[in-house]
Design a protein around this nucleic acid. Sequence first.
DNA 1: GCAAACTATAGCACTAAGTGCTATATATAG
DNA 2: CTATATATAGCACTTAGTGCTATAGTTTGC
Lengths: 104, 104
Amino acid sequence: MNRKKSDILEAVLETAKGLHAAGAMDQVTLREFDRLCVPPVTALKPLEIKRIRTQSHVSQAVFAALLNTSLSTVQKWEIGQKRPTGAALKLLHLVKKQGLEIVA
Amino acid sequence: MNRKKSDILEAVLETAKGLHAAGAMDQVTLREFDRLCVPPVTALKPLEIKRIRTQSHVSQAVFAALLNTSLSTVQKWEIGQKRPTGAALKLLHLVKKQGLEIVA
DNA sequence: GCAAACTATAGCACTAAGTGCTATATATAG
DNA sequence: CTATATATAGCACTTAGTGCTATAGTTTGC
């Protein structure tokens, strides 16, 4: 389940900060990354993206502004002409699960 | 101040949901967008990006994975070879202000 | 001590995302 | 009726994002 994995991630990040403060660790590296179990960021279909926006009850223009992207880009996402990747896809997943309020 | 603006945004989004449920409004459009006062997403210098990561105490590889981007991209951000824009820049600002835990 | 794996910087080259602009159709506000 | 806003559509350009390889320094484990 995702909640559990996220809890692990948060715990590790918190622990890293604590250990760093104690001078026992400088950072979380790839070595302990497998324990983090990052939630998978799957591809989003055009209609899924549109649903994320409409469920927030904002227009394409407002949605674009809140995500710091262009109107043209949001339109192409929803029509399937371009597909969001990387950080954009991650941000969309965050909005999907946590609501548009997180970008405030 | 940003907190106040964000409060307005959250209030409008919440209100929109409420009005929609009541059948009085379908979505927030550009017409009332000026009232939203979206917090500006300024460009981030290479060293600022590096600080955001190091303050989270994670390696470039882990940081990249958490943002759903590539190691190569994070490296180029920090060296100034490429500059994050759009959704990527927004996500970095979110991490800067709210911590890496939000991507969990 | 030595080898294997990880971190970070660097450079090359390609693809496609992101962007801007224009046009059209529909709907809404004044 | 006129202005403005929403949404879809298409064209063309720039550059972010990605992958790969190499080098050097650091850490882990045998």
